[in-house]
Design a binder for these strands. Sequence first.
RNA 1: GACCGGUUCGUCUAGGGGUUAGGACACCGCCCUUUCACGGCGGCAACACGGGUUCAAAUCCCGUACCGGUUACCA
Length: 541
Amino acid sequence: MTVRVRFAPSPTGYLHVGAARAALYNYLFARQKGGKFLLRIEDTDLARSTDESTRSILEGLAWLGLHPDEEVVFQSSNAGKHRSAAHKLLAEGRAYRDFTPKAEPNDANVKDSIKDRARAAQGVKDMRANPFRELSADESEKRAAAGEPFAIRLKVPKSGATEFDDGVFGRQRREYADTEDLVLLRSDGHPLYNLAVVCDDIEMGITDVIRGQDHLTNTHKQILIYEALGVPPPHFAHLPLILAPGGKKLSKRIHGEIVSLTTYRDAGFLAAAFRNFLALMGWSAGEEKEIYSLDELIEKFSLAGVHRSSAIFNYEPNNPKRWTDDKAIWMNAEYIRTMPLAELLPLVKEELRSAKLWREEYEPDGRALTETVPSTADAGPDERPAGVALDLPEHGSYDWFVYTIDLIRQRFFTLKDFSGQGRAYFSEDFDFDPAAVEKNLKKFPELQQWLPELADRFESVFGEEWYNDLGERVNHPFTETNIEEFVKAFTEEKGTKLGVMMNGARTLLTGVAVGPSMLSVFEVMGLEKTIRRLKSQVAWN
RNA sequence: GACCGGUUCGUCUAGGGGUUAGGACACCGCCCUUUCACGGCGGCAACACGGGUUCAAAUCCCGUACCGGUUACCA
């Protein structure tokens, strides 16, 4: 039988990282088994469901690359079928009308009041105590016909137990006595979750239900419904929950946008990196490997490798450096510095574009950024693209762009860094990090004279261009080797350390204190910008 | 309260009767270096507790503690 799994979120907010992980596991499972991955939006809670939420879920899944194989199912459009299933069970005597007046929902703290009520009952509640359970069919019909409102409840047998083998948690058993006569249909005619899920899963031909552990006890109720309906239940597998630091459930109300998938997209995470991180939250292939491509995840994934214990999603709200799980941040950085440039470049392009830093010259006709480009990070000056080593006019070209990105990506954590920390590479309008100015400039006041002087020297040595008859440049090109020799001599002349000069220059050129080798920075900025920025007094004021 | 689960470094985890309990992130130190959040080397750091079973328990059994889930005419 072909495997068919589904991800079934309710559209009552953004896509939660835990839900995203459930979607991912479903997807991996389906792909590995050659099955289908389906999406069903459980929008039966009219009061809380929103279209915006549905869009956000769809967006999030698309970002992660989890595309459903069939048309999206909206649960609300199946309400009629759910209703008739309930009535069928009623007609067969497997369910009954409950004329108990509906209790008023006590607002915000429903969960707490339920818990309190249960605690007060001391756990000795008789689940079969409903007086309408044994009401005669005639009487029941009569009252219904008279217009008295009623809910339909499943008639759970008095003795026995539901059992199933969970793909993660193993054999599960629950006495009927512990399961109430659950409501299938509300008195206003709306089907309830457990009925809707079962009906839809049957209708969609779901073979394996992989979902959060919070549904583990629901499963027993659902099996009861399958049995009443006379349909064999699918396989079930429940996933451990993702907790916040301190061991509490990761929730929107308490933990805010940290739990939303879109937060990560918007913060400059790579989908591949976050997917990789998510896959490892609660699953392991049992090997010492951390970086997995999607294909590898599909190949290696197994329910047996899913843990039974919940994982903690670590983060520190007030620490900008650790605003989310540090392993997630590390993994994103790892992807940024090691992934093929052809995959990274288009993402950087998008980032620069949205920061208004993108220039069409970086991707001229016939040179798509998606074409395979070898990393030049370890290449010597002679092996680099021509446009890089020769300063203008190639400066700002495709080759310059590719080389620059490859250079600066080594120390970046997110795509945002390309437009933030890396802004000075693409724009004249960049800020100076006060800490960098303090540490690298103000601490050495002489630099205010020296650096502009260095600029003048640069100009006289590298500025004029002479060419021979063949059109080859014969004077000093502004390249690492030449710059190094020159700056060293200049530093010696001033009687200071090379580091002082270099770091001062770094701050003026890039606005920050960290980055690649300063020689590369000079080269990549080009002579013109280097001179202008070394002379600028903006940072000094 | 009841039912169901869980508990290996701070975090993610490997290991499922005999291991110096392994890796990764984070952290610390050293090296490289013009800086650095790159890289290299090294370090710190864990089997919740108590009983059993066994020659031998992180690993199997029981109990306790703690944590989580569920206990709706929410999903």
